[in-house]
């Protein structure tokens, strides 16, 4: 099954951004052992917009977390941009996330005590940029997502769609290689959801961002260039989406 994912998308090494090989992920809940992912292989080329679909508990979010360095596999290797991230120390992995990954969450996960600009600026606090430069970049990111008029607004003062766009601005402000989106439209109405998908598609097409998006929504998945389905921790099928080309 994982062979399907590989066979449909043979990629030259140079174009390969994410290389997941033989990954198992096991969770222990008390005395119970839960196999979430089993022997999973997945290759994602640069510039792809990949949708991951599957029923609840199929391992989509776990896979996303592993590729984003938020968790570690029980077995197997994960290489992103030529770097074996499963071998990095916690400290180095945090640094790698800061530089290479942008995360977009279903429930936005903005800091309620910070304005939109301050929220977007958060990842930049870990850089050596001056306060002026951080501010400039945060404002640029908010401009890209169409929120330059909401710089000083707090999350509670914004709609769900605006909060999610702020979340996307926070994800792209460090100009990461990889955007990981965990059900980015799951908490939005259709119109707002479409706007977010438009935005992700634009980031993929115009800025070449590689995007992995977990979704339950077939319409959202259709925006991707490729869709993979997971079931019980294994890839079961792959298909080209409308976003291709």
């Amino acid at each position: 099954m994982s062979e399907t994912a590989m066979a449909e998308n043979p990629q030259p090494e140079d174009d390969l951004l994410v290389d997941v090989r033989g990954v198992d992920k096991v969770f222990k809940r008390g005395s119970e052992t839960v196999h979430v992912l089993g022997g999973l292989d997945l290759q994602i080329p640069r510039g792809e917009f990949l949708a991951l679909m599957g029923p609840s508990g199929s391992g989509k979010s776990t896979l996303l977390n592993l590729v984003g360095g938020l968790d570690r596999p029980t077995e197997g290797s994960i290489t992103v941009g030529g770097q074996r991230i499963d071998k990095l120390s916690d400290r180095k992995l945090a640094g790698w996330r800061a530089n290479h990954v942008g995360l977009v969450f279903q429930f936005y996960n903005l800091m309620p005590v910070l304005s939109a600009r301050r929220n977007v600026e958060l990842p930049l606090l870990l850089t050596k940029l001056s306060a002026k430069e951080r501010r400039k970049r945060a404002e640029l990111a908010l401009e890209i997502v169409g929120l330059s008029h909401r710089l000083g607004h707090y999350p509670r003062q914004m709609s769900g769609g605006e909060q999610q766009r702020t979340g996307i601005a926070r994800a792209i402000v460090t100009d990461p290689t990889l955007l990981l989106c965990d059900e980015p439209t799951g908490d939005l109405d259709r119109k707002s959801g479409d706007e977010i998908l438009d935005l992700l598609q634009a980031l993929n097409r115009e800025q070449g961002k590689t995007i992995i998006m977990v979704t339950h929504d077939q319409l959202a998945a259709d925006r991707a260039t490729r869709t993979l389905h997971l079931d019980k921790g294994r890839l079961v099928t792959g298909m080209q989406g409308q976003g291709t080309g």
């Binding site: 938020l70 400290r91 945090a94 640094g95 800061a98 995360l103 969450f105 996960n109 870990l126 926070r170």
Partner: peptide, 16 residues
Amino acid sequence: INELAVLKAVGFTDGG
């Protein structure tokens, strides 16, 4: 807890 996890997700270290 969730916000602290987000800080770690965007790159803050455990020590940070």
